[in-house]
Design a protein around this nucleic acid. Sequence first.
DNA 1: GCGGTATGAATGAAAG
DNA 2: CTTTCATTCATACCGC
Lengths: 171, 171
Amino acid sequence: MEAVPVGAKCERWNPTAEQVKVLTNLFRSGLRTPTTHQIQMISAHLGAFGKIESKNVFYWFQNHKARERHNKKRRRGPPDDDDEDGTAAGDHRKSRTRCFRVGCSKGKQEVYWQRKEVRGETETLELFPLKSSISEEADKVITVRGELCGRRALYLDAAGRDHPPLDLRLS
Amino acid sequence: MEAVPVGAKCERWNPTAEQVKVLTNLFRSGLRTPTTHQIQMISAHLGAFGKIESKNVFYWFQNHKARERHNKKRRRGPPDDDDEDGTAAGDHRKSRTRCFRVGCSKGKQEVYWQRKEVRGETETLELFPLKSSISEEADKVITVRGELCGRRALYLDAAGRDHPPLDLRLS
DNA sequence: GCGGTATGAATGAAAG
DNA sequence: CTTTCATTCATACCGC
């Protein structure tokens, strides 16, 4: 079973199911940024389930909050629902670039990431000759230019055989 | 042989040769941490080769970068793992509103926080029924009330099986 | 069929 | 708080 303490190593804190449950419940109850005292109490309480330090609690809330914040992207539908890419269609006027969500069906994954382009500089570089060994695609030079260019719809159908040059702009 | 997506399972993303090639080229071109937009574009582009999600691209870069770095680290042959860092964590208990932090990244370090409760208001709410699936703990309602209450010592021994209700006061 | 190996995914820890 | 790093976990794939 899962009884195997996978994280046998004493290094990284490996929360037990109970600890996670408690933390989760606390979080769901609205606790976002516990105070020092709260952290200490929670930590002490959770200590009954296993080794734990206050900093673990602190980090847990930070991570959970951050990840949850971006997970609200889309509903956690079945894996069948291929792409979620909801950000693309809409007009984003947020100053920060953020996003993401998760998606498998197995139940526990929260992926989040966001990377904001910090530089206005734009460096254009040519990239990899995209050669498809399957369809024997002719060599194509793809220009990688970071930062949204949105000039053309880069979205291709899964069945699409033709792939327009990836246009990215390295920021 | 590999002409077909071996991993027919919808489980883990199984990148095709083309996808890997594109990603690799992008990486080799200097792309380390793609922005959200870049990820989306790449993902969309790679979608032409097969099912793929943005998070796959995200993870790919994360892993690739980490792996590359890890391999580089393998330079020294001798088991020179004696890293005695006498970092005396300076205990700066500033009366800041909040904080923590420590010293180095490698090795043990102390994390301090001091968060000030900014509101005098106290909202009491009941929290999660603490149920231990392992020890079959009876349902317990824990009252979460932020802000130090310190009425009782919540500190439990690691061996302690009994955990008093967490008493917190949400501020 | 079972091992090891490569790598996708998850998350704790920490830096910015 | 946001973003990245590092470590670990899980799984596909390959060889025996």
